[in-house]
Amino acid sequence: MKLSIVYYSQTGNTKKIAEVIKEGVEKSGNIQVKTMSIEDMDYKFLEESKAVIFGTPTYYATFSWQIKKWFDTCKECDLSGKLGAVFATENVLGGGADVAELSLIGHMLVKGMLIYSAGSSQGQPYTHFGAVCTKDGDEAQRDRARIFGERIGKKTLEIFD
């Protein structure tokens, strides 16, 4: 089973968190996971993935225009029926990551994805909309991102295995 982590990262912070989330997914079981920038996509792997986690830096309380452009122009990408999740990085606590995640989730719903955040159903740490890290995260934030990845991986296996 395959899971894609698709992100945009200008400074490298979002890429670093994508790799941390990948570590968590790999702990969840028999899933082949690949991180990829929207600028260097493996569309075959994406098409074969049962789940996709999208990551974005936060700009003015929304997700990056590069991710928005990708959603608007990637007509050949069929995301329908795939499990979807999101994560965001921000420069400062309270930088609008929740709003960015909700906006990104809206685009995913339009594409027909099934959205999962683990919410409070899995207990601490709670994930309301998706994982959030300030810059490349402190150790506690990176631990939460790893747990987030593991939970998304487990739910992918539960639904599609």
Score class of each variant (00 low, 15 high):
Phe160Glu: 01
Ile115Gln: 05
Gly123His: 06
Lys82Trp: 04
Arg142Gln: 15
Glu48His: 01
Gln10Arg: 14
Val110Ile: 14
Gly153Thr: 09
Tyr60Val: 11
Gln124Asp: 14
Cys74Arg: 10
Ile152Ser: 10
Gly130Pro: 04
Phe45Arg: 01
Lys135Gln: 13
Lys2Met: 02
Val99Ala: 13
Ile159Tyr: 13
Ile159Arg: 13
Asp40Cys: 01
Met113Arg: 03
Gly106Ala: 12
Gln124Ala: 14
Lys22Arg: 15
Glu23Thr: 13
Asp78Val: 00
Lys50Gly: 14
His128Cys: 03
Asp143Leu: 13
Gly130Thr: 07
Lys2His: 08
Met36Glu: 11
Tyr59Met: 12
Leu157Pro: 05
Leu104Phe: 08
Glu139Met: 08
Ala97Lys: 09
Ser49Ala: 12
Glu101Met: 15
Glu158Val: 09
Ile105Pro: 05
Gly29Asn: 05
Ala88Asn: 07
Gly81His: 06
Gln32Gly: 05
Val6Gly: 09
Gly29Glu: 10
Ser80Asp: 07
Gly12Thr: 11
Ser121Leu: 14
Val20Pro: 08
Leu93Phe: 07
Phe45Tyr: 02
Ile21Phe: 08
Leu93Gln: 13
Gln32Lys: 09
Asp72Asn: 14
Tyr116Leu: 06
Leu83Val: 01
Ile115His: 10
Ser80Phe: 01
Glu48Arg: 08
Lys50Trp: 02
Asn13Ser: 14
His107Asp: 07
Glu19Leu: 14
Tyr126Asp: 09
Thr127Glu: 07
Ile67Gln: 02
Gly123Ser: 09
Cys74Asn: 12
Tyr8Asn: 01
Lys154Cys: 06
